[in-house]
Design a binder for these strands. Structure first.
Length: 859
RNA sequence: GCGGACGUGGCGGAACCGGUAGACGCAACAGACUUAAAAUCUGUCGGGCAAAUGCCCGUGGGGGUUCGAGUCCCCCCGUCCGCACCA
């Protein structure tokens, strides 16, 4: 029997699939259609094992659906714009385009070697001018319809390199290259009005349009959109004769937004954001405040950085009047108040908000509790280090005393409205989507700045606005901005001198509609509407949880815009979503703290050493998401080279449930390799068995037939429910039975081996084809109809029940599947082990759960 | 800081709606085959007491609900992901 050799077998079948065009989607016809998509990769140059896992999952679904009779679309492309290419250009001098396309070449090869059932005829990269031209066209449409606008917004600014930094380039508040403390700087940038769609994006999460999405992702998006109902009110200034003269716009006082107007009586201060206009007003001529504000702007722009910073404030020389009594509230500029949320100003109720409490303790402000927990004593209740945010009854609150929080909120709003100080208001946490990036390697924003006409769209006939081929990457900053000629153009309206917009799009724009271009490519428009309507929405979308919010929310938003512009008819792009876990790996460092590749390390008894025995001690770090920077990566190429693609795919999907993180271990893939050999050794002796006629069919109680149909039913169910690890366990079980079952029936053998081959086909497609050919199956196994289980062979005649006495298992009982409860009780009581445990006790109750368990309660 | 998840043998995990905890795989150990090794095959494999069968403990920790809890509720601990310019 020849040994299975993946190096010969795998390329052979890939060529045959490719020649036959097995995986090219068919034109619309009688078959139901199914669109499977994995999030497309960034062309970093190498596929990593996480890609293998992601694409193997999609491939299983694609192959399974194809075998089940669907017209399947399973495309692939490249999320090709982005910073790494530009970083590479700075480091090595290679042009981002050269670097990117070379990476794509390499990765396409690597992906092809995984044996994925992809329709490569639809491949494109987002950096192809044919793609980004259509993106520019979409943007012009959005702009025309008022979905896009410009406003000022902050960026991370590196004062030494004189460049904008991404959040990930800010490390501990410092620029990654210069090590200089970053600052926030204001730039005029492009935004898309995603907040206009906030209500519908939110509604779809709950109204069934996204019933195929996991609840945790929907919840995260819901929290991200963060719709809240509250009170928008103005605090009047306390002192008419203050040295302060009111600035324009603040004649009526300071506007704040709150979701907890019920706690107004607990207010002890107000605070405004460092970039609030009122702060600017007071900073004028106040160097100390200027310094404080500048200091606040010396943290990164990420919300995380702002929220984690120590709460600090700067008192302003004014006081505000409490709306309900004669208290005066001091006003601070505070670093934890966000200008972009609500009114950029808050009132602080320290007793019932942790941030406010921290702040109040630091500045010696009063802490008056106004919500009394259900069982607390109003005289004794005090706030120590923790704010009370639970339910309760209002007290210390005059006309609100005794009300619940909910009623208190309504009552407070009513009162403020009656006083004319404010009104109830709805707020969103969601902000408009800033799409401007001050970088070269992205899709140019098709706009022209003209001294006379303002900002003018590039006429459609002039699209695409292509990136200039020559660019200087030797210094930080935006190469488009300092390009000698590119940006200088004539204004399309007045013909005068103008300059191009030098910002490019956020790469999330590129990935917000690529799936519709896969489904419906067209030469002269973003999508072909007929094809888009046929294929969309994507039936099954698969990708990492790290995209749960931004990418998925932006894509949902884009579909709404494209529908409003008449490009297609859906508003939800992804009918079913699966978020797979990441591939993680142990990290290792040498004595100088440098990261070491896992393949260079051996671990014995918890002690890590270098494999070559050289060098100093190796410290074992935490298990983390695989990343180039920490070098905790493994190369799928090397694995596939040694074991073949099938073993690599099998291992990535066995053991860990798909939604959970999986830790890569070298030992695991060995087991997968053994399985490939075992299957081949089991199937290959049965040459042409499927071709043999006249085999006699055995009786229905044949054990092998039952096992076969159990396996078919189980694996099918597991694939349908994304439980690939369980499907694999069932295949192992089936294989174990297959090898143990001594059957004289060739008919049952043929059925079993045929089914085994079909069941493994989505997982190990090359091996399956080779087995199928050996067995004498017709055509490709990837095109053979998926087997169906025979219900008659799935039924069980007897069941084994556990018998408990007082909740502890004491015996097992084999009973007929249709035995009634009385029979089961009698049998249970007559078991020896049961008798021993109920001896001398009175039976109080017998619980019989049919098909499961019997519990005898006795004392 | 805010939001979302996760925690079961030496390891990855299984356990459906609250019903026999540990399927399946990996590692380990023992045996068969072999001059030997590899590969392959067979068996054992949560801990403890017993060593035939039985008993006690055991699903991150503590409490609770229930005839019965890995699963439900409350509190705590730990790990991971996201936080709007990484993709």
């Amino acid at each position: 029997m020849p040994r299975y050799n993946p190096k010969e077998v795998e390329p052979k079948w890939r060529n045959r699939w490719s020649e036959a065009g097995c995986f090219n989607a068919e034109p619309p016809g009688d078959k139901p259609n199914y669109y499977v998509l994995e999030m497309f990769p960034y062309p970093s140059g190498h596929i990593h094992i996480g890609h293998v896992r992601n694409y193997a999952m999609g491939d299983i679904i694609a192959r399974y659906k194809k075998a089940s009779g669907y017209n399947v679309l399973h495309p692939m492309g490249w999320d090709a714009f982005g910073m790494p290419a530009e970083n590479a250009a700075m480091q090595t001098g290679s042009h981002p385009s050269t670097w990117t396309y070379a990476n794509i070449e390499a990765m396409r090869d690597q992906l092809k070697r995984m044996g994925l059932s992809i329709d490569w005829t639809r491949e494109f990269a987002t950096c192809d001018p044919e793609y980004y031209q259509q993106q520019q066209r979409l943007f012009l449409d959005f702009w025309r319809r008022g979905f896009a606008y410009r406003k000022e917004s902050y960026v991370n600014w590196d004062p030494v390199d004189q460049t904008v930094l991404a959040n990930e380039q800010v490390i501990d508040g410092k620029g990654w290259r210069s090590d200089a403390p970053v600052e926030r700087r204001k730039l005029s940038q492009w935004f898309l009005k995603i907040t206009d769609e906030a209500d519908d994006l939110l509604a779809a999460l709950d109204d069934g349009r996204l019933s195929g999405w996991p609840d945790n992702v929907k919840l995260m998006q819901k929290n991200w959109i963060g719709k809240s109902k509250g009170l928008s009110m103005k605090f009047r200034f306390a002192d008419e004769t203050s040295e302060f003269t009111r600035p324009d716009g603040f004649e009526d006082g300071l506007e704040v937004y709150t979701t907890r107007p019920d706690t107004l009586f607990g207010a002890s201060f107000c605070a405004i954001a460092p970039d609030h206009p009122l702060a600017a007003h007071f900073a004028d001529g106040n160097p100390e405040l200027q310094a404080f504000i500048a200091d606040c702007l010396k943290s990164g722009v990420s919300e995380e950085a702002i929220e984690k910073a120590e709460k600090r404030g700067f008192p302003l020389p004014i006081e505000l009047a409490h709306p309900f009594d004669d208290r005066r509230l001091p006003v601070y500029v505070a670093n934890f108040v966000l200008m972009q949320y609500g009114a950029g100003a808050i009132f602080g109720c320290p007793a019932h908000d942790q941030r406010d409490l921290d702040f109040a303790r630091k500045y010696g402000l009063s802490v008056l509790p106004v919500v009394l927990p259900p069982d607390a004593n109003s005289a004794a209740f005090e706030i120590a280090d923790e704010a009370y945010v639970g339910p309760g009854t209002l007290f210390n609150s005059a006309f609100l005393d005794g009300l619940s929080i909910e009623d208190g909120i309504s009552a407070a709003i009513a009162k403020i409205e009656e006083m004319g100080h404010g009104a109830c208001a709805t707020q969103y946490r969601l902000r408009d989507w800033g799409v401007s990036r001050q970088r070269y390697w992205g899709c140019p924003i098709p706009a022209i700045h003209c001294g006379k006409c303002g900002i003018v769209p590039v006429p459609e006939k002039d699209l695409p606005v292509k990136l200039p081929e020559e660019a200087d990457f030797s210094v930080p900053g935006n190469p488009l901005d300092r390009h000698p000629t590119w940006k200088h153009v004539d204004c399309p309206q007045c013909g005068g001198k103008g300059t191009r917009e030098t910002d490019t799009f956020d790469t999330f724009v590129d990935s917000s509609w690529y799936f519709s271009r896969f489904a419906a490519p067209a030469p002269d428009k973003p999508v072909d509407k007929t094809a888009a309507d046929y294929w969309l929405p994507v039936d099954q979308y698969i990708g990492g949880v790290e995209h749960a919010i931004l990418h998925l929310l932006y894509a949902r938003y884009f579909m709404r815009l494209m529908r409003q512009c008449g490009y297609l008819s859906v508003d939800e792009p992804f009918a079913n979503l699966f978020t797979q876990g990441m591939v993680v790996h142990r990290t290792f460092r040498d004595e100088s703290g440098e990261w070491i590749l896992p393949e260079d390390v051996t671990v014995e008894n918890g002690v890590a050493r270098r494999r070559d025995g050289k060098g100093g001690p190796v410290s074992i770090g935490p298990i983390e998401k695989m990343s180039k920077s920490k070098r905790n990566v493994v190369s799928p190429e090397a694995i596939a080279e040694t074991y073949g693609a099938d073993a690599a795919r099998w291992f990535m999907l066995s053991d860990s449930p798909p939604e959970r993180d999986v830790e890569w271990t070298a030992a695991g893939v060995d087991g997968a390799w053994r399985l490939v050999g075992r299957i081949w050794d089991t199937v290959s002796p049965a040459k042409d068995l499927l071709k043999k006629n006249g085999l006699s069919k055995p009786a229905a109680d044949n054990a092998l037939r039952q096992a076969t149909h159990n396996a078919i039913a189980g694996v099918t169910d597991d694939i349908d429910n994304f439980r690939f690890n369980k499907a694999i366990a069932r295949i192992y079980e089936f294989l174990n039975i297959l090898k143990k079952t001594k059957t004289s029936s060739d008919w049952a053998q043929a059925e079993a081996l045929g089914a085994l081959t079909q069941l493994i086909a989505p997982f190990t497609p090359h091996l399956a084809e080779e087995c199928w050919e050996t067995l004498g199956g017709e055509g490709f196994v990837c095109e053979a109809p998926w087997p169906k289980p025979d219900p008659a062979l799935l039924a069980r005649e007897t069941l084994v029940l556990g018998v408990q006495v007082n909740g502890k298992r004491r015996a097992e009982l084999e009973v007929a599947a249709d035995a009634d409860n009385e029979t089961v009780k009698k049998l249970a009581l007559s078991a020896d082990a049961v008798k021993r445990h109920i001896d001398g006790k009175t039976i109080r109750k017998i619980v019989v759960v049919p098909g499961r368990i019997v519990n005898i309660v006795a004392n």
